[in-house]
Amino acid sequence: MNDVPFTITADLDLGTRVAPYVRDSGGEVTIVEGEVPDAIESDDMGTNFSVNSSQFLLNVPNGATYLVEGGERITYRRNGASDRDVALFLLGSAWGALCFQRGLVPLHASAVIHKGKVHAFTGQSGAGKSTLAAALAKRGLDFFTDDVLIIDPAQISDGAARCFAGQKDMKLWADALTLTGASKMGAVRDEPGFNKFFATPATSESAGSGNLASLSILKNENARRDRQPVEIEKLSGAVAIKRLRDSIYRMRFGVAIMGRQKLYSALAQLISAVHVQTFDRPLNKHAFPETTAAMRGWICDFGKSND
């Protein structure tokens, strides 16, 4: 069984983040430098993207532009950007659009793998997904993916949801490196004061795919409302779907490319196969060891009482 949902052949160095996807030639997706139009016909358009069911166009301010077509080709116009900067946004928003074009659903999630089961953490930017995954890796659970977790709706059945790692390196801010003990690699950007780095977690699993067991939606409300500060609450049915909708990576791209009904149908399939819950905890660094231990304990006990 394939360990990646698709393969790529690229004319630039994409770094080690998606190394398992890369083939020297003959990849299912071709990534090349070339001409990119200024505009495409669009079903939805934001300030920096346009999208229809088969094409996606992205403009990075003062940076590269990307055209993603038919789930088979990404053309980029460099506009002076370095390989690293071209790869950074290619493996972010453009990658998300590519997944949708291929019928896959990318979730905005980081994950660890334990006893063959993937446990993912989702939440909006700044919610602490990567930091939690890195900290759990330091505490003996294997890191699985950062930022993007890919679901193949065609591979959800019999209570099991196969998932794929979107990114095999982490991106962590300097304070999160200190907090988690992950090893610092190169800078994500060269701009002064941009203290975000590629990082290697303490323990990592080389597998690029696994069965998704749980999805924890990260919250930080209880500590600000004088409620029980660390709380795990199981979600199901319509509530779970509604909360997971916000976990889809670049939802607007997905709606334009796959259609709302297909996306919701995929989410409904997903919650039938995966344990969905919220994980509410304080974000202050003094509480971090305790909250990380709480999640570690929950994962280690998973299957004994939670499923």
Binding site: G46, P61, G92, S93
Partner: peptide, 10 residues
């Protein structure tokens, strides 16, 4: 609205 990951932008 932008379709970009602002956490990768300065």
């Amino acid at each position: 609205v932008s379709g970009l990951p602002s956490s990768d932008l300065t």
